[in-house]
């Protein structure tokens, strides 16, 4: 185990992102609304040692009730429509929606009209679009960090700003 830890210490982040230290955070709830699993695999690697998104205060939380952001992958299938809307309804305000990947954005969605509902923005207001099939971990990380920086906090003193 010590050998592993020593090894890990030598790994350097390779993604060129602005230095952390912004005193903010972003709690993400991911929902797979009908992906091919590619977007998930790349999203997972945003926490690999090369990217280490956690250093920016960005992390995945287990429940939509703890989340600032609903991050959706895949074109929404008929069978995921309800679960997706339920997750969104469970989120506290202010809440944001991120559509990750070309399918979620509605480009070249594959399937039958009967089985697919449509892109994410046909159901929810989308605040950030991250294109790619799939976008790489670096691209996902860069987009999320920029999003975190750009959004003025609407919460002050524990209360939503007027």
């Amino acid at each position: 185990m010590f050998a592993l830890l020593r090894d890990l210490r030598t790994l350097r982040r390779t993604v060129d992102l602005p230095a952390p230290g912004r005193g903010r955070s972003l709690a993400i709830r991911h929902v797979d609304a009908g992906s091919c699993n590619g977007c998930e695999h790349e999203l997972t690697l945003t926490s690999s040692p090369y990217c280490d998104l956690a250093r920016f205060g960005i992390g995945v939380v287990a429940s939509p009730r703890h989340a600032d952001v609903l991050l959706v992958t895949g074109a929404v299938t008929a069978r995921m429509r309800e679960p997706l809307l339920t997750a969104y309804a469970a989120m506290p305000e202010p809440r944001r929606v991120v559509a990750l990947g070309d399918c979620a954005l509605g480009c070249d969605m594959l399937g039958t009209p009967y089985d697919l509902v449509g892109p994410v923005d046909s159901l929810l207001p989308v605040d950030l679009r991250i294109p790619g099939c799939p976008p790489t971990p670096d691209e996902i990380a860069a987009a999320l960090v920029e999003f975190l920086d750009a959004k003025p906090s609407r919460v002050s003193g524990g209360q939503p700003a007027a």
Partner: peptide, 21 residues
Amino acid sequence: FYKHRGLERAAEGADLTAASA
């Protein structure tokens, strides 16, 4: 099958290249 997209049915009638997507 929550993620069922009907890919096989959607591919029916397409030529072999289009269907490969």
